[in-house]
């Protein structure tokens, strides 16, 4: 459903992406991992239509992306700035649905349904800043779910929450993706990329390009303890780790 051909993007002083080729099939969950500064976020913003790539083509369901596509949602890392503090949790989730021509009660019902799916039905009438960081990120996941996009992009979505919350949110993503939604998840966490993904794409350090495209051979039912002790998991994370680390200059902190 998503094709990226010869994508390149240059900023004034450096090349962020060069000759990126990638194809994603409907219903796949693809992790994109790479050292910091490898252009992961630039790639994601190009797909979202937020920046125009200097070179190459991105097509979504056969249509070239020139502006923000209609059926796409993004979960940003910085939930506290992405949610609107003056709207309640429910109104935050319902806001993007206004354009879809549904009545107010339908929008509110859809918002409540999405909040239920992320386990936050009780917080509907609270304001985002009354919730913990993990809960706020759940709200922005609920907002994306309620929008029912064909493609969901996640930009380091769990980068600013604690380890326990991070695991909960990873499981949440695995749980909610079952409705055939295609998900692209950008992360710098090697374990996470393997645990959540059907496929792991490793990007080179700048200029970013696809260094490896690995299928994850883990059963689709995963859990934080037993999946992580499977030999396939251990092997896979070592392989991804070597690839990511191999690209980094010696002594670099990841």
């Amino acid at each position: 459903m998503l094709q990226i051909e010869k994508l390149g993007h240059y900023y004034a002083d450096h090349t962020a992406l060069e000759d990126v080729n990638l194809e994603v099939a409907e219903g796949e969950l693809v992790s994109i991992v790479g050292p910091s500064g490898c252009g992961k976020s630039t790639l994601l913003r190009c797909i979202a239509g937020l920046i125009r790539p200097s070179q190459g083509r991105i097509t979504l369901n056969g249509r070239e992306i020139t502006d923000v596509p209609d059926n796409l949602a993004v979960v940003f890392q910085d939930y506290s700035r992405s949610l609107l503090p003056w709207l309640t949790v429910r109104d935050n989730v319902a806001l993007p649905l206004r354009r879809r021509g549904r009545s107010k009660s339908e929008r509110q019902a859809a918002a409540l349904g999405a909040l239920q799916a992320v386990g936050l039905a009780d917080a509907a009438h609270k304001y985002p800043w009354q919730l913990s960081g993990g809960m706020q990120q759940r709200v922005s996941i609920a907002r994306a779910l309620a929008y029912q996009p064909a493609l969901l992009l996640m930009d380091e979505p769990f980068g600013s929450v604690d380890a326990q919350t991070r695991e909960d949110l990873e499981d949440l993503v695995l749980r909610v993706r079952k409705d055939g939604m295609t998900i692209l998840l950008v992360t710098h966490d090697i374990d996470e990329s393997v645990y959540v993904g059907d496929r792991v794409i490793v990007l080179d350090r700048a200029p970013g390009r696809v260094a490896a495209d690995l299928a994850v051979g883990l059963p689709s039912a995963r859990d934080q303890i037993s999946t992580r002790e499977l030999p396939e998991f251990v092997h896979m994370r070592a392989e991804v780790g070597r690839l990511v680390r191999g690209q980094a200059p010696p002594g670099a902190v990841l």
Binding site: D70, V74, F76, R81, R98, R99
Partner: peptide
């Protein structure tokens, strides 16, 4: 980021004005 969110979810210009 709030404006980027508005673009991603393709909020109408009225919504952008009055909600953000």
């Amino acid at each position: 980021l709030q404006m980027a969110t508005a673009r991603v979810f393709r909020l109408s210009s009225t919504d952008r004005l009055f909600k953000i």
